[in-house]
Amino acid sequence: MENNRKVVRIALFVSLALAVYLVENAVPVPVPIPGFKWGFSNFVVLMSLTMLGTRDVLWIVIFKVLLGNFLSGKFLSPVFFISCFGNLSGVLSMIALSKTRCFGYIGISVIGAFANNLAQLAVCGVWLLRSVHIWYFFPYIALMGTVSGVLNALMAKGGEQWFRTYRKN
């Protein structure tokens, strides 16, 4: 019974993350960076970090990246690899930081966004474009990552509260 509940939760979180992943492209981006995304779907990952176990969080991220890229037709394209490495380092850093118990939602979220962006730039600079000049984008994405990280933290907090009241009813 407990296992069923877990599976349902993972499925729910994956579909929520996917919906956000696909819809967030409609939100305009204020920086001149190609392929920049807000990364709002990470608020679901953040939320699952406190509501589910570490292994479940990793599954959610893997499903989010695979299905998200399937649905947007980017599977195995350069964007897919950028997204893979970004999400992986983002979630690993968030898990590590949440284990220390020194940081709240905002710190964990900001570092997740930062690690995500850093890994994406690294994949572009070292592997895809092989140019050091791609790091010109770093200040922009560090700032935007902080903004989206804070927004994600607020959304995760709201989402968690909603889930708690929902369970009572």
């Binding site: 020194c102 940081f103 709240g104 710190g107 900001v110 570092i111 560090a142 700032l143 902080t146 804070v150």
Partner: peptide, 24 residues
């Protein structure tokens, strides 16, 4: 918001300002 959160945000912002100086 905890103290660690503020430190992290400060660190990230500081790093991006430092990087901005490297860019021509």
């Amino acid at each position: 918001m905890r103290k660690g959160d503020w430190l992290l945000i400060g660190g990230v912002l500081l790093l991006s300002v430092a990087f901005a100086y490297w860019i021509p």
